[in-house]
Lab assay of single mutants.
Amino acid sequence: ELSWTAEAEKMLGKVPFFVRKKVRKNTDNYAREIGEPVVTADVFRKAKEHLG
């Protein structure tokens, strides 16, 4: 699991709890794919757009 900024964690907190774990995993995987060592708010937004 990658490191997350406080802002990205806050955004994740707005995701319904029953899918939060999956969203975190998918976002981590997306960040790795694009070469990001940390999940930022920008990476979170891009993952959301990319993953739907």
Rank of each mutant, 00 (worst) to 15 (best):
F18D: 11
R45G: 05
M11A: 07
E7T: 06
K25E: 15
Y30N: 01
A41K: 07
R20W: 03
E1W: 12
M11F: 05
L51M: 13
E33D: 11
K48Q: 15
V38N: 05
T5L: 03
E1C: 13
K22W: 15
K10V: 10
Y30E: 01
E36H: 07
E33V: 09
T27C: 09
T27M: 08
T40W: 01
G52R: 15
H50Y: 12
S3F: 14
D28A: 07
K22F: 13
G52A: 14
F18Q: 11
E49G: 08
R20V: 04
D28C: 05
F44H: 02
W4D: 00
K14I: 06
T40N: 07
E49H: 11
N29P: 00
V43G: 02
A31D: 01
P37W: 11
K14C: 11
K46Q: 12
K21C: 14
A8F: 01
K46M: 09
T27Q: 01
K48L: 15
L51S: 09
W4A: 00
F17W: 14
H50A: 13
V15M: 11
F17R: 12
E49D: 10
E33K: 10
F17Y: 12
G13C: 13
E33I: 10
A6W: 09
V39C: 01
R20K: 05
L12S: 01
A47F: 12
K46I: 05
P37L: 13
T40Y: 01
L12K: 01
T40P: 01
L2K: 05
K25H: 11
E33Q: 11
R32S: 05
L12A: 02
E1H: 11
M11D: 04
R32I: 08
D28P: 00
H50N: 09
W4L: 01
K10S: 11
L51Q: 09
R20F: 02
F44P: 01
K10Q: 13
R32K: 11
V15A: 05
S3P: 15
E9F: 08
D28V: 07
E36W: 07
E36R: 05
A6S: 09
A31M: 02
E9Y: 08
L2W: 04
V43I: 12
K22S: 12
N29F: 08
K48A: 15
R24G: 02
E36I: 07
K25V: 13
R20H: 03
K21M: 13
A47E: 02
K25W: 14
